[in-house]
Design a protein around this nucleic acid. Structure first.
Lengths: 226, 226
DNA sequence: ATCAAGCTGACGTGAAACTGACAGCTAATT
DNA sequence: AATTAGCTGTCAGTTTCACGTCAGCTTGAT
């Protein structure tokens, strides 16, 4: 899942980034409003964590322009301001959630998870598909009652495929979701990850089907047709 | 917009109800968990405001069962508990937002508005014909509940035929639809694609009928005559 | 019967995808 | 610091597959 962090406080920035990366997100960080606004005109994210107090262009303004462009990417606002006024203003501008500093990391992560979940699926912390159950909270995937040991990449790919249920996910989309701005991977890399993940999944009644020229989709073995 | 308020505190209950009604919501109020759970099995809402501390069945449980039934109705949790644990637990159970008492009315309303706004999304363009459903955005065609595995060309042809419903589509039209202007294909190529698509469709009650000299049309098997 | 229109199995080609091997990197351990 | 193990991207050789062409056949109108 790809996340944009807009924050100018150096310490907070680094801490949050490291924490999110560790949790398996592809994170881009930017520290001023103007840059964020520009970035958001051409790059899609799964979720945005936005500090309101920013140099050059306020968080309010970034949010307002984002929504004005018709985007409905989930946005979580960070604010040092205690008063209700600004929260309400933020929410009415189209923010989906907010957190008041100081906050606990665990809570921020839980809220980010909730936003992503809401955006893509409608369900709870656990995503299911056939015998597979993916627990987004502690990032573990079970097949029936045995735990799969997946690498970070494989995990992220499987999460994406499961979130999209049985829909086709293009390689480009996969690349976007697995990589942050400064590291890009080839299409072939995606094929390799798919290949490795397949090896671990093909014991069960679930396969990653290739749709030539379009992408991949997760499918139960029985519903295939010719 | 229809809203369910699950709250046992008498004073809060009345205040919230009056306020929401005033804002134009259709509000149902119920004060115990068991009743709420039962109600939710047969009544759909646009948004649910749910207190966690309830008699008979806790808010957690109500939420868990709601999600277990596959509902993705937005839920906003109200809680008197200050500790982070319960917030995280609630969000991970599939809540979309929460508010800690005491809160301001204006803020609750702003959040409810935000949830509803989020809710109305989704729904990609779909074309149907008989048992066939063609999802144009995901480029996938279902026959009943099983997915057809079609190649790009077959997909494009079927899309065109389904768009024109039961009308005749000429080979020329098909050629135009399948090819960009810089690559042309023969009429025979169209026949081949039709042939291949037929093989995959003739399991179902749908056929591609040939109208000599004019083109093809999609038809349900039962309405053939002579 | 004749002939044009349409059908379809077979085949070749080029593009897309797969995968084993390898190497750089990171993180953990000694 | 050195070592080791696991992760991950790249590369290259191979395989798979879509799809247009062709050729021979069937169909149907006259």
């Amino acid at each position: 899942m790809r996340l944009l962090l807009v924050e100018d406080d150096l310490i907070l920035k680094d801490g949050l980034e490291r924490s999110f990366v560790k949790s398996g997100y592809a994170v881009d960080v930017i520290s001023d409003g103007e840059g964020a606004n520009k970035l958001l005109t051409y790059q899609e994210y799964d979720v945005i964590v936005l500090d309101l107090g920013l140099p050059k262009l306020s968080g309010f303004e970034v949010l307002k322009r984002l929504r004005a462009r018709g985007s409905n990417t989930p946005v979580l606002i960070l604010t040092a301001l205690e008063d209700t006024q600004n929260r309400v203003k933020g929410l009415d501008l189209g923010a989906d959630d907010y957190l008041t500093k100081p906050f606990e990391l665990a809570e921020l992560e839980a809220r980010v998870r909730a936003l992503i979940r809401r955006g893509v699926s409608g369900g709870s912390a656990k995503i299911s598909f056939g015998v597979l159950t993916f627990d987004t909270t502690n990032r573990q995937c079970m097949a029936g009652d045995i735990a799969l040991s997946l690498s970070a990449r494989e995990m992220a790919l499987l999460e994406l495929l499961m979130l999209k249920a049985a829909k086709v996910v293009s390689k480009t989309k996969i690349m976007e979701h697995l990589c942050s701005w400064d590291d890009e991977i080839s299409e072939n890399a995606v094929e390799v990850i798919v290949s490795r993940l397949r090896k671990k999944l093909n014991v069960f009644d679930i396969e990653i089907r290739t749709i030539r020229g379009l992408g991949y989709l997760l499918a139960k073995l029985e519903n295939q047709h010719s």
